[in-house]
């Protein structure tokens, strides 16, 4: 699990076209798509759903796409069953709800996932720096992402130690003795985190990170041709969908 996390955020895949896009451009795309989804009617949302689906297929997110859509379909079915039939609460527009849930819901989630899967931490921080977000946010971001695997690993080790000492080692202890988890696990992991933070601060100081002044980004984020291309394609798509939805 740790490995997949770090691979997702660290390792670059040279084959993926979307990874070359500037994260700022992708963020804008996500924002525009979200707004479009929020205000769209059924035709637009189905159009967006298809567009998102195609992009997802190209980003190797097929499984996620299928899973998300089936989840929404299932949820809609449960809704219909539970409320419409059993509880007799009329749902005014079941078809609209279906479109909204399945199309809008999937499109929203898949756009987000597309962004998440194709953006690497380093590119993201470069983009943030290009937007002049101060060091005081970017540095903790880098530290936090880098520490998530470490703290997760530490949690597993602590859990093992707790098991060995027979502290809350059975599943039912979760309900019977939750305070033990708090006392033992939370206290220890917090202490360990704070100690690690202190060690990291010492390392950071000796690496000169407290230097006043600007840091020079090695590969600054830049809008390239592909970025403008994708943004324009998106805008065209949305305009087309808006116009089309007037005719239906």
């Amino acid at each position: 699990m740790i490995r997949s996390f770090t691979q997702r955020l660290g390792q670059r895949n040279p084959n993926c076209v979307f990874e070359q896009l500037d994260p700022r451009c992708k963020l804008l795309i996500v924002l525009i798509v979200t707004i479009a989804i929020v205000f769209s009617n059924s035709l637009m949302s189905s159009g967006l759903f298809i567009a998102v689906g195609i992009v997802a297929l190209f980003s190797r997110l097929t499984k996620a796409l299928l899973f998300t859509s089936s989840f929404w379909v299932l949820l809609w079915c449960i809704f219909m069953l539970l409320f419409h039939i059993v509880m007799r609460q009329a749902i005014s527009a079941p078809r609209a709800m279906f479109t909204a849930m399945v199309f809008k819901g999937t499109a929203l989630i898949m756009t987000g996932l597309w962004f998440a899967v194709t953006t690497k931490l380093r590119d993201f921080t470069s983009a943030l720096e290009a937007w002049r977000i101060p060091k005081i946010i970017i540095l903790p971001l880098t530290i936090a992402v880098r520490f998530i695997p470490t703290l997760f690993h530490e949690s597993l080790v602590i859990r093992d130690s707790m098991k060995l000492r027979r502290i809350a080692h059975r599943k039912r202890d979760l309900l019977k003795q939750p305070h033990l988890i708090g006392h033992s696990y939370l206290a220890l992991i917090t202490i360990r985190s704070l100690k690690m933070a202190d060690e990291l601060a010492a390392v950071a100081e000796t690496r000169g990170l407290a230097r006043p002044g600007k840091s020079k980004i090695f590969k600054p984020a830049q809008f390239k041709r592909n970025d403008y291309l994708s943004l324009s394609m998106l805008l065209v798509l949305i305009i087309v969908l808006i116009i089309a939805s007037y005719f239906v």
Binding site: G10, Q11, T142, R146, L200, V203
Partner: peptide, 8 residues
Amino acid sequence: NTQFFQLT
């Protein structure tokens, strides 16, 4: 383990 800031 506590000397690093990045992922790669």
